[in-house]
Design a binder for these strands. Sequence first.
DNA 1: TTTATTCTGGAATGATCATTCCAGTATTTT
DNA 2: AAAATACTGGAATGATCATTCCAGAATAAA
Lengths: 199, 199
Amino acid sequence: MARQQSQPRQDLLTSAMVSFWRHGYRGVSVGDLVRDTGVSRSSLYSDYAGKEALFCAVLDHYQTQVVTPLFGRVEAAGAGLPAIRDYLRAAIVGEAMPERGLRGCLVCTSWTQVDVGEAEVVARLQSHAARLSAGFTAALTHENTQRGAGLTPEALAALGHYTMVAAQGTWTYARFADGAEELHTAADALLDHLERALG
Amino acid sequence: MARQQSQPRQDLLTSAMVSFWRHGYRGVSVGDLVRDTGVSRSSLYSDYAGKEALFCAVLDHYQTQVVTPLFGRVEAAGAGLPAIRDYLRAAIVGEAMPERGLRGCLVCTSWTQVDVGEAEVVARLQSHAARLSAGFTAALTHENTQRGAGLTPEALAALGHYTMVAAQGTWTYARFADGAEELHTAADALLDHLERALG
DNA sequence: TTTATTCTGGAATGATCATTCCAGTATTTT
DNA sequence: AAAATACTGGAATGATCATTCCAGAATAAA
């Protein structure tokens, strides 16, 4: 059965995303993608310049399909500490997979797998980090204003950036963590810090 | 020039460690190792069963040559928050490489590169995480006692574990960070958290 | 010196991988 | 139905890689 070009192949990107998410950029071959997506090798190469270009499209897809639904609540106007708490908890629940353990985050998994020379990919990873850092900072700034905690913009930016780094540690560690409970403990410690800092 | 077996080849492991540290487990081929270590392919395979076995030896070497010198001060009897501060700062300074940017941590880089099937490697990675978690917890416990802060052993264990996760995030993020300053900011935020928690 | 032992260089092997190509089949358009 | 378009299966290519193997050089032991 041939497919239509008129419809964008969302399913292709989603299937590919799942594969990359599970085994990492280097751990998925084009042959694996053919098997997992059900799209022929020929079509893959007619739609994308190559594996790296496809992975870039997957990273963009990941932003809209995974990051935005989870992290959007932090980026929303009026979001504060509760939104950050919701994000962390929802993300941990979303990570849990009964069969294959924890997946971690696609960006965090890719972070140490791509080479500096793969500039298009690196740019997307850094863009993701900047997105989270900015989102956290905005929410913390709002919370700071609401509480009248009196933190400086510099301190709030540092705290937001740190929150991103700590979250990245959590999603990275998730790959070989014993279970979701371990992650909830780490997330609670991070939230406790933010709470105290804005105290 | 032939080498002697009687002398353990420390230089081989150190050279291999540097290569893996820089490019990651998957990013270094046996050919690269032959070039970087100066040891012939034949000798590599006569000393180690294969690439995975060599990498395990490198991970053990990393523990004694890199982790112990840096983290030993945290594990030492009587270590407290200052020891953790020293560790974080010294590690960031040690990470800085003028030419090729930041290296991150060998274990953190490997964390998302190895497959679940490579059990020997995974065991060493988890052992490293457990070592850091235990070291942080011990130092925090000592600090807690000295200050009479009154945290429960469970709370201290959770805080020590979280410190390990946050540090892992820092060393992972280091790979594509803009510079060491960014890492110092994150480390300061983590230290601020520990300070407040033991306040 | 003679005899083992240790190491090297490099070729060979077999597997995997990204990418290209094409003949043929299904689908859409006219 | 006929022509154009979109997709497929699978083979072919060329590169890379981990591992094995061996003839010979360097070193140590006798």
